[in-house]
Simulated scan of single mutants.
Amino acid sequence: MIEITFDGVGAICGYLGAIWCILNLAWGLFRNDASRVLIYGIGTFAAIIVMLNVGGVLNSTTWGIFGCCVFGLHCLYAAATGEAAWKVVLYGILLTSSFLSVVGVF
């Protein structure tokens, strides 16, 4: 059974990361982009594992860590490839809020 809980900003960032992975997976399938499908397929699989909460070992901190991973990799990729500055700032804000939630600020 899928566990849907609200445990703060980390959960919101985790859910945003999962939605982002699913939408990019669909976009990659639509555009026939194999590398995008592979990357976001792995991200979607990880999100599903976290949502299913297999064995009850995953908690709200896991969502925050998932958000940190998704948005951190996007921020790093956007900065390294020289994409628009607003993307780096947006991913940086989402990464920071996920990280602050994991360490207990929010």
Score class of each variant (00 low, 15 high):
Met1Ile: 05
Met1Asn: 03
Ile2Met: 08
Asp7Lys: 06
Gly8Phe: 01
Gly10Lys: 03
Leu16Tyr: 00
Ala18Leu: 15
Ile19Ser: 03
Ile19Thr: 09
Trp20His: 14
Leu23Trp: 13
Trp27Leu: 13
Trp27Val: 14
Trp27Met: 11
Leu29Trp: 08
Arg31Phe: 09
Asn32Lys: 15
Tyr40His: 15
Ile42Ala: 15
Gly43Asp: 11
Thr44Cys: 14
Thr44Lys: 05
Thr44Ala: 13
Ala46His: 05
Ile48Phe: 12
Ile49Phe: 08
Ile49Trp: 09
Val50Cys: 07
Val50Leu: 12
Met51Pro: 08
Val54Asn: 10
Gly56His: 06
Val57Ser: 14
Val57His: 13
Leu58Asn: 05
Ser60Phe: 13
Thr61Phe: 09
Thr61Gln: 09
Trp63Cys: 04
Ile65Arg: 02
Cys69Val: 14
Phe71Arg: 06
Phe71Val: 07
Leu73Cys: 14
His74Thr: 08
Cys75Glu: 04
Tyr77Asn: 03
Tyr77Met: 05
Tyr77Cys: 02
Ala79Asn: 08
Thr81Ile: 10
Thr81Gly: 03
Gly82Met: 10
Ala85Ser: 05
Val88Ala: 10
Val89Ser: 02
Tyr91Phe: 12
Ile93Glu: 04
Leu94Trp: 03
Leu94Ile: 00
Thr96Gln: 00
Ser97Cys: 07
Ser98Lys: 02
Ser98Leu: 04
Leu100Pro: 06
Val102Pro: 06
Val102Leu: 02
Val102Cys: 05
Gly104Gln: 08
Phe106Cys: 13
Phe106Pro: 11
